[in-house]
Amino acid sequence: MNNTISPFWVIVNKEIADHLKSWRFLILLFILLLTCMGSLYSALHGFKTPIKSEDPNNAFFFLKLFTVSDGSLPSFAIFISFLGPLLGIGLGFDLINTEQNKGTLSRLLSQPIHRDCIINAKFLAALSVISILFFALSFLVMGFGLLYIGIPPTASEFWRVVFFDLVSILYVAFWLNLSILFSVCFTQPATSALSSIAIWLFFSIFYPMIIHLVAHATSPSEMATPHEIYHFQEFIMSLLQLSPSELFNEATTTLLMPSVRSLGPLTMQQVQGAIPGPLPLGQSILVAWPQLTGLIAATVICFALSYFLFMRREVRSR
């Protein structure tokens, strides 16, 4: 055992190789590269507009590479929140059911390996591909930005970008787990792909519309007390935060814009006496901590569900 690689890592290596060779991955990579370059161009173009001196984010000039755009294209962070799910779904929707349909799953299971090795290894392989991809993309943006603007990032800016990458990976891992879950549930890959994409579309397009409707219907009258308005805002915020993309957006906003001090509605009492200024990294993470907790929990729950279902599944050879 000491000299040979454990079967778990064999499967991980094989899966990574499979992903990298597949056309699907190449297409996704191409789309992501295009958007990454597009948003970088738009951010650099946006840099040409004069800086407003009172903006406390000016001290974090480098981070604007990820958040600023000239309006023609969304910024890098927004692109990731929109296209990241697609990457996760693309890598995960057929992991189990294709193997099962091809009959390779039972052959694999006949080998002397534990059954949970398979699903763990498949998840880890996809996750490592995503991680490598995201770190590569963000360092690419940093590198080109450095070439163009010539201002190196400070240590705090660098760590903020690293944390942004980690949060992005976590977010995509959620969608990956969701699609793995569907690929365990449904025998047809098309069904699992469609259902994953349906959920993705629902949360990124229809959910905000529904919330808007609800907010419109339940909005307090103009005569409402500030207390009521505050609670209404809190209610709408909590509804919005059911969507993973909203959680991701709030977390990345906090990480990439150090001047963001709170994500919920604020009362006048809280704002009074406060002066605008950037937060230290630790405080920014603490502000986004509830969102991060939600994302981590949702990801782990999806994984646990798919694990549970896969382990209970009866796998027969054809």
Partner: peptide, 30 residues
């Protein structure tokens, strides 16, 4: 600075979920 209390509550939630996964591993790991 934000009080770390809610941070720890978040950590607790994550620990519980991961504990659940660990329980699944042990039970169904075969």
């Amino acid at each position: 600075e934000t009080s770390l209390l809610w941070g720890w509550v978040g950590v607790l939630i994550i620990v519980i979920v991961i504990g659940g996964v660990y329980y699944l591993f042990r039970k169904y790991g075969r």
